[in-house]
Structure formats: C-alpha cells, structure tokens
Design a protein around this nucleic acid. Structure first.
Lengths: 359, 359
DNA sequence: GAGACGAACTGAACCGGTTTAGAACGAAAC
DNA sequence: GTTTCGTTCTAAACCGGTTCAGTTCGTCTC
C-alpha cells in the first residue's frame, strides 16, 4: 500500500470515538465507569483502527513488563545434551503467547554470574516474574528474589534445609514461592524395584551434582528402596551431568572388584555414555550390565540397546509453571500444583542379572 | 536496611547535580554540548545515587526495546535432541549481557504460527532485531521481516532461489540482511572423501528437511564429492531430523538389495539411532556399516562406537551473530562474517569397507 | 564596541499509556 | 425545589526517559 499507516495510538482511538483517552483506557481494561453503549463504541473503533496498546508505554506507567524470565545456570555443553529445557520452554511458550507475554531467557555458565543477571532483570524491570529451575540446597536465589521483590514459581518444592531450620525463624517454614511439583521419587523407586526384581543386588547410582535438590531427592528415594530390600546403597557417584562424567564414573565403577551389575544414571546422556563404556570393556548390555537413565529423551528409544528410563513431562511442567506465574501475579498468590508423577519406561537396557562367567 | 530507597531517576540525578534533566541525559549518552567539568559532576552523582536508566522509559521515548529476538520453529522433541540451539543461545547471551540487552525467545512448533509471532514481536516493539536460523528455501521470513522493517541477521547466506531469480527483480540479488556464514560444505565434502578413501562405494545420505537450505547445501556438497569420484550419489533420504526418522530411514536403507556400506546423517541423534538399528539387524559398526553424524554433539564422543561427525561451533556462531546485530543497529549496516569452516572429526564409527560374508 | 557566533545549558514538549481529581448531569430523597 | 448521590465522563498529572527550540554568556571579529 502507498500510505504508510502509522500504528494507531490510544489518542487516535479517543479522537475517532469522540471521548477522552482516559475513558478509552477504562473501556479497554474492562473497568467500571463506562456506559455499555460508549464501551461498545470505543471497542468498535479500536478494532476498526487495529489498535494495539504499546507495551513500552504500558510498562512505563504500570511498572510491569509483561514478560517472564528464565535464567539457566548450566554449561552450554550440558544444556545441549539435556532435552529438559527445550521442552520446558516450549510448554511455557504455549501459554505465554496466548497471553501476550514474552519470555526473556538468560543462559549463564557459572552460578556466580547468576545473581547479577537476576539483579539486572529486576533493576531494569525486564520481567514481572521468573521460573526457578534446578533448585539447589539452601538456594541463594530464594533469598535474593525475596530481597528483590520478584515473584517466582519454583519447579519442585524447595526442601527445608538443616541450615534454614537452625537459622532465623523467619526464614524457616514453607517456601515463599508457589511450586509446580512433579514427583520423581516414585519413578525412581519403581526403577530401583524393577532392578531388584530382576535379581540385581549390586546397583550403582550415578547422580547429578549433590547441591541440586532433585539429585539428592532422587538419590534418597533410590537408596530407600534398596535399603528396604536389604541391598547396599553405597555405590553412589556424583557427576556434573555431562556425558563425559557419566563415562568416567562408569569406568571407575566397572573397575571395582565387586563391580555393580546395574547402574542407574541421573540423565539419559550419561546412561548412553555408560553403555558405550560397557561395550568398550567387552560387557554386554543388559546381559552383563543393566543400565537405566532419567528423563526419557527421544534418543532413549533408539540407542542400542534401547534405554530404560524414567519419564517426566517437561512440556506440561512448563505449561503449569507459566499458568501459575500468571495466577500469582493476577491474584497475589497461587496454590502449589501436583503434576502426574514420573514413571518408569522399561526397555531393553535392563535385564535379569546373570552371574558373570569370569566371576 | 530500614529505609526502603526507591530507585533513583534521572530527575534525582538532575536535582542533586543542580542541572536540568535534559543535560543529564546528554551527559549519560556521551553527547556533545556538555562541559567536561559538568559531565564529570553528573556522572559522579549518577554513580553516587546508583542511577540506572529505566529501560521502559527509554524504550518509550526512543522506540527501542534493547532486546533481540529468536524465534525457533521446531518441534520441542527435535529441539531437545539437537545441541545446536542451547550452545548458540549461550553464545548470543555472552555478548548481550555485557551490552545490557536481553534475549526474547519464542518456540513455536509449526511454521504457520511463526509469522504471527514475528508480527507480534514487531507490533509490540518487543525486540529491535532478530536472529534468523534454519534458513529455508524461498524463506517467507525474509520478505516478512522486510515488510515489518525488522532488522535481522541470518545464520548462513540465503541462497538466491529459482523462484526469486524469475520473479520481481527487486527481490533478486543479495540478501537484505547481513549473514554470519559458517561453511559446512567443506566439512561434508571432507567427510565424503574420508569414506571414499576407506573404500566405500555405496554411500547413503540421510538429510534433514529439504526445504532447509543447510540440508540441501550439504546434500549438494556431498553429492558433488561422490560424483567427482565416479560414485553414485542417489541414495538420499529426507527426514525431519528426529531420531525416529533416522531410525526408520536406516531400516529402509539396510533392507535394500544393494544396501549402503556407509551412511551419513544430517545430525548426531539420527546417526546414533542409525547405529542402534544397525546393531539390531546384527550388523557391526564400522565393520559392516560405517556411520557418521553432523554437529559433533558431546554425546558423539561417548556412544559406542564413538561417532565420526562434522564439527561446527555454535557458540561462536551465536557470539558473532549477536555482535553483528548490534553493529547493524548501531551503524545501519554490517558486513558478512565468515567463521572458521566446519571440519570432520574422525572417530570409531567409520572404517574401511569390508565385503560382506553373505554378499 | 556592536554584532556574530558557538558552547553550555534550560524548559518544555513528547513518547503512549494509566490513574486520579473533579465536573456535569440526571435521578432519587426529603 | 433543593440537596444528595451515583454514574459517566474529562482534564490533567504522572511514569522516566529523549530531544529540540531557544536563552544565556563568553569570545572572536572587524
């Protein structure tokens, strides 16, 4: 078209509708004090002019950015191997786009830098709230976000730590933020039981970083199940979630005098790397070694042998978290949500224990 | 502290420094018309008050959002398996955080929805520019972004298509946007040559979607190398980049009467799935079948057998793209950048061809 | 010494919304 | 018929920056 039409502003709508711009604002925001007739006229004009309120103008006067933030503190390498975040983000996005909000993403490699990012996000009022993932023990972000007055939703309910219990009573008690909870202990326990049922009595656990709550929570669920069966639960190796670490942990485990007959990993990439190491050492999976992962990434189904894993649903986790954050901002509070718990997906990488020929 | 100190505004700075707020603005933005002495005083006061300009206020008056956008149109499943984006984003972030800009991310599952997202981003002035990844043939986004007047940087130089050449001359010619180019044809050609050198004469190519420029570009480089050696280059299967598609393509290839002795895949997850299928069919890699991937994800080194792949550098791709977009906005134009080309990383999944025992 | 000029600075408009104080007006109350 | 009240609406302030027209003042020119 020849005439470059500028974006219509609230003034244009007011002029055409023959009212003051204040009234247009009222009408558009569904606030009382506007007659039904006038409201309809204003809405009609707005539609006619294809009016869309300016986000920046609105942000300035309401001190609201209409955006949510997600700060991920992980090494890009690990991030790339882990299918969780892309799916989680897709779920978040699915909700936000329909609500006219945007997602501001920050990837920082070290946790030191993390606080700066949150502070900047808050100081610049870039976001109205954030998603807190990868909860850590005594997570400094909880206090930081409270200090900044930044609304947040946590993925999983932060465990009250020893440190918090003994410290300032005002800090004790439930989390200051609502949580979207996806119980993964059930799935982990079921996985442990599955291995026990297969006859395994020497089972190792290659976990993620101990400072992450989900790592220890799963570790405990795992150990509990083994203990209940009278099986030792001491074979635990901590890693940083990289395939490299998974491989190295596997190497160490298989070099032991009483090497495990089954290894459970904190994520799928490590498990896949573990299978690789087993093969390299001439072991067959699952005949000589059972292997299981966590997250049930797409690849799990297609590696050889196909990988037993624990399935979570990051997509609906993202959806729920986004909806919860919206509710928190709209109503000032939100109740915790429990999602469908994780469950085991048994595939070919786990099988009955066999006494080694060489044993 | 007891006194809740509100954020300092430009008015506070002006008042304390004893000047008008206009002058403060000039001083802070390094514009002429401020004496050195006054400038120093203003800057000192600003630092003293811990003044940070309000992004929303600035956005409103400058019509600039100080944010860049990345719209990814991929199924979350594929996204999760593909290590490219997390690394790319980390690279982008590395540059943006030091520049006080944010990254607005959008994940859409279908390409239909894509245009809406770009239009919304533009209409709401959420971002000042965008990164264009996964360039397609006759990519509708190029025209769309031009129409929207949205600055952009492309990953890879868009190939001038047949359609464009024959159409409106104004559309022909070089891309309207600067590009960060990472030549992957060289690496693909080297990979093909590597397989030829190993004696393979029946080599298949499992590519990504044909509508993606990088898929066809690599396909051509691959075919050219085979053709030059007098080897047939007709074994090409198109997939959607999922491990599932990689597995199914492998199944079909290995069922052929004259099955390939080597298969090259468009990404690592497909290649890993391919190895799985080969194993399932009782073939050994690389003895019976050589396999190679693309992207050289972390996992490639740790699967069994370790995967020959082509290494790109998404992290520095992200850094360069971010810097280029900044320059484009600051100076109105930016020259294309050529990054270090991709190169083959030979591992254990490719080996000399062996005539099959059953052949 | 008058005029021109440039540097330093001020005041106000402006970006496009929201919000509040208060005006106008009709209806109900007494 | 006046007072009171509630509804509908307007005008203007406000959010916190940028920008532009114009004022002030010192210096240079002839």
């Amino acid at each position: 078209m020849a005439t470059m039409k500028r974006k219509a502003t609230i003034n244009d709508v007011a002029r055409v509708a023959g009212v003051s711009k204040g009234l247009v604002s009222f009408a558009l925001n569904d606030r009382p004090g506007v007659s039904a007739e006038t409201r309809d006229r204003i809405l009609a004009v707005a539609r006619e002019l294809d009016y869309r309120p300016s986000v920046s103008a609105r942000s300035l006067s309401t001190r609201t950015s209409y955006a949510f933030g997600l700060v991920i503190a992980r090494d890009p390498e690990i991030l790339g191997a882990d299918p969780f975040f892309p799916s989680f983000i897709a779920g978040v996005e699915r909700v936000l786009t329909t609500e006219g909000r945007a997602l501001v993403l920050s990837v920082v490699s070290d946790e030191q830098h993390e606080a700066t990012v949150y502070r900047t996000l808050a100081a610049d009022a870039r976001v109205d709230g954030v998603f807190l993932t990868d909860l850590r023990h005594d997570d400094p972000r909880l206090a930081l976000l409270q200090e900044l007055g930044m609304p947040a939703v946590t993925l999983g309910r932060p465990a009250t730590s020893r440190a918090q219990e003994s410290a300032d009573p005002s800090l004790t008690g439930p989390s200051p933020f609502p949580a979207v909870v996806l119980d993964d202990t059930e799935g982990v326990a079921a996985l442990a039981q599955h291995l026990l049922d297969l006859g395994h009595r020497r089972i190792a656990h290659v976990t993620g970083p101990r400072r992450m709550q989900h790592a220890t929570r799963r570790g405990e669920a795992f150990a509990r199940t083994l203990d209940a069966a009278g099986v030792a639960s001491d074979l635990v190796l901590e890693t940083d979630f990289t395939a490299a670490a998974g491989a190295s942990a596997t190497d160490r485990l298989l070099a032991l005098a009483d090497a495990p007959t089954a290894i459970v990993y904190g994520n799928d990439p490590m498990a896949i790397a573990g299978i690789g190491i087993a093969h390299e050492r001439g072991l067959r999976v699952p005949d000589d070694l059972s292997v299981a992962g966590f997250d049930d990434s797409e690849l799990a189904r297609y590696v050889y042998p196909s990988l037993t894993s624990v399935r979570t649903d990051p997509l609906s986790w993202g959806e729920s978290a986004a909806r919860m954050l919206l509710r928190l901002l709209a109503e000032g509070h939100a109740d915790d949500i429990e999602l469908e718990p994780a469950h085991v997906v048994v595939r070919a990488s786990t099988g009955p224990v066999r006494t080694r020929a060489t044993a």
